[in-house]
Nucleic acid binder design. Sequence first.
DNA 1: TTCTCTGCAAACGCTTTGCACGGAT
DNA 2: ATCCGTGCAAAGCGTTTGCAGAGAA
Lengths: 143, 143
Amino acid sequence: MKSHGGTIKDISEFLSSKGIKPSYQRVKILERMYKMKDHPTVNDIYKDLIDEIPSLSKTTVYNTLNIFIENAIVKSFSMDGNEARYDILSNIHGHFFCLECNKIYDFEINEPQIYDNLLEGAEIFESEISVRGICKACKNKKS
Amino acid sequence: MKSHGGTIKDISEFLSSKGIKPSYQRVKILERMYKMKDHPTVNDIYKDLIDEIPSLSKTTVYNTLNIFIENAIVKSFSMDGNEARYDILSNIHGHFFCLECNKIYDFEINEPQIYDNLLEGAEIFESEISVRGICKACKNKKS
DNA sequence: TTCTCTGCAAACGCTTTGCACGGAT
DNA sequence: ATCCGTGCAAAGCGTTTGCAGAGAA
């Protein structure tokens, strides 16, 4: 996020600027997403916040994430057709899923214009590039 | 598919060569996938075959597709986190989903080595590139 | 008060599992 | 007789919906 520093106050103002009322739950969920730059599932977020917000329900996590998606703050994707994962909208990058350690790595795409030739005339709203395999670290460990 | 012509006999032999018993259901499901090169859901396949195979159950469609996936004949992907879609494994291509007409178009990726710089040292098993937007035809219609 | 957010419980839709029947070898 | 594919019914699981109570303005 370029427009704020990541404090509670910053995030609250950021949400307000988007027309989203900065409730405690919403701020905490977004704060968590900025802090840990993983690609959490709803359950990940729920587990990370339930100690701090004992009354939290998964419904609220779902609702909040859907609001964030509608307002182009986060995007959702799926690595395996299973649960959805959520990612802060930022520069174009792909997701690499390591089948060995189950981690998801971001990788940069240095040619954002890769689609230009392929889909000329079309209007592109969003894209998702995901790759599955074995990451460098795991590969070295095995050999 | 390079190795056969698409007749029932061809498909049966193809399945046998993979160690998969070419039952009527399996052959018909695979035949349908080669004939219509769309990106069907389980339900699409079921509806297309239920007249010809009145006893067909969705469970069998699921089972069969999973066998095909295990044997690297088809792959599954998801356009919207909803139902899974299935695609015959072929050359690398991306999927473009038009939000206007809801069609899915394939597009070629003329740089299969696009990942080389990005993920060097990693071993890539499979990848999926999906793009959402408005296709050329729909865009022209609107303007 | 009024409006919106929250969160429980239930519904929903896709997919998998358990299991028994039936066909093939 | 044995093995395996099929398909019904039920379970499973992630997600959404209905709704009532709580909280903010």
